[in-house]
Computed example of a mutant assay.
Amino acid sequence: MLVTLIAAARSSSLLDARFDDERPLDAAGWQALEHAIPMLLPLAAAELRYCSPTPCSRQTGEALGLAPLAQLALRDCDMGRWRGMTLQEVTLREPQAVDVWLADPRSAPHGGESLLAFVSRVGTWLDTRPVEGEGLIVAVTEPAVIRAAMLYALKAPPASYWRTEVHPLSVVSLSGCRGHWTLRLG
């Protein structure tokens, strides 16, 4: 099975990126999406098409002609009381909590989901996709979810999450099934 993950077009500038961002695509996101459509349009032939429930993921999926089914498991990490805030804002208010969160993948000082729980949730979603031969699955989701999926597929140490960047409209494919995934680039 091949699962192709597409990072949603942007909903804000990097400096204004917020935890659990529920904003729709911004003008730059729509413009980038228009340029990417010709390259990504063939993915609409996928047998199963999903998206995160966020506005930017749904809008990206619809613009690509996917008519995706929203999946709660593909939502960004639950950031608890930090939801809607930028990392800079949280660091100013709770510097020690941010240090703990970045250092310990089991911690959730914000009251939401730990990094390990987040990666496990995304991995469970991957592992429970229907296995029908060489089927193609496409999902549009937030960059953080794609980072978690790569971490899960590679069985990489949790610190690797902080060393991975996924830009809007990036595409990553994983092949395999239930706990045996391979990262495919190109």
Rank of each mutant, 00 (worst) to 15 (best):
P109V: 01
A8H: 14
D20S: 07
A139R: 14
L74Q: 07
V171F: 03
G29E: 00
L74G: 08
C177A: 05
L40P: 11
P158V: 04
D16H: 12
M150V: 13
D21R: 04
A17V: 01
L64W: 15
G176Y: 02
P105C: 01
A159C: 08
A32D: 15
G135C: 12
M1L: 12
C77K: 10
C56A: 11
M39N: 13
A156D: 15
V100S: 04
L15A: 13
P38N: 04
A70W: 08
M150E: 08
R147P: 15
V171Y: 03
V138I: 15
G123Y: 09
V140E: 12
R81L: 00
A156N: 14
A70G: 14
A73Q: 13
Q31M: 00
F118S: 07
L115H: 15
L136W: 15
S160R: 05
S52G: 14
R106P: 04
L2P: 02
S107F: 06
E47I: 09
Q96V: 03
G65V: 10
A149S: 01
S13E: 07
R10W: 01
W30S: 03
V138T: 13
G179F: 06
P157N: 14
Q88I: 07
C77V: 15
P55T: 06
E132M: 06
A153E: 07
S107N: 09
P130C: 02
H167Y: 10
C77A: 11
A27R: 11
L185K: 08
L136C: 10
R178P: 03
L14H: 02
D104M: 03
R93T: 10
A153Q: 12
P168M: 10
C56I: 00
P168N: 04
R81E: 04
E132V: 09
G112D: 04
M39E: 11
R75W: 11
A28K: 14
S175V: 10
Q59V: 00
V138A: 06
L66T: 03
L183F: 09
S170T: 09
A144Q: 05
F19L: 01
L40G: 07
V119E: 08
G133V: 08
S114I: 12
L115V: 11
G133N: 09
G133P: 14
R106G: 09
A36K: 07
E34H: 03
S52N: 12
L72T: 02
L25S: 05
I137N: 09
R75T: 08
G133F: 08
C51T: 13
E22Y: 03
T141C: 14
L185T: 10
A97M: 10
L14I: 14
R106L: 06
L5W: 10
A149K: 06
H180P: 06
A17N: 03
P38K: 02
A67L: 05
G29V: 05
A46Y: 03
